[in-house]
Amino acid sequence: MQDRGIWFWAIILPIIFTVLFISVFTSGLNETESRQVILSIVPGYTVMFVFFIMISMAESLLKDQKIGMVARIASTPLSNHFYLLGKWIPYMYIVFIQIVILLLFGKAVYDVPMEQPLLLMMLAIFLTFMVTGIGLALSVMVKTTNMGIALTQVIALGGALLGGLWVPVDMMPEFLQAVSRFMPQYWAHQGFQDAMAGTLKMADFMKVSLVLLGIGVAGFILALLRPKQ
């Protein structure tokens, strides 16, 4: 929270990218086609940029290790999983606020639909849980900030590319379409798009939610498996 730069790349940078890419990809398109592009880019870039929180999470944990805070806390009665929860929860707030602001920006500026607001809200919570869960696992595994930045970029940009955030999945070759099903970004993007358009069925919502929650839980378990030191 002390790092004010976080608000630049969590809010301002995604907004700049969203505006730029919408203006590029909608030029020369008719109204209906433009609406489709906007409906893909707004949630797509939201999903892509939330992943960059992992850099801040890794930095925070590395700083704790560097100044001996992890060792000091390990000497107190606080258990390892409560320490990790303490590191996790503040970033959940940040990511959730980030998602809400980016979607509201899409609504205010491009009038994107939000036909199923309750499901959208729940998906935002699950996406928050998932991305910060992966962030936590990454944080305990990396040994340097540079390693954290590099892996975040692989996960965020690689997942964005393969998950259909940049190019619609149905325009990809068939084998890449199969690969995209393994990307959490794909599920989050599909869920958001459908909930915004009002076409998200309960079965699909459950499927997307389970994928996002499952990955988040897996991240936390992976983080817990690492020893205190």
Binding site: K66, I67, G68, M69, A71, R72, S75
Partner: peptide, 11 residues
């Protein structure tokens, strides 16, 4: 036990 680390482990 009270542990005083070698590093200044403070916020």
């Amino acid at each position: 036990i009270g542990y005083v680390p070698q590093d200044i482990s403070l916020e």
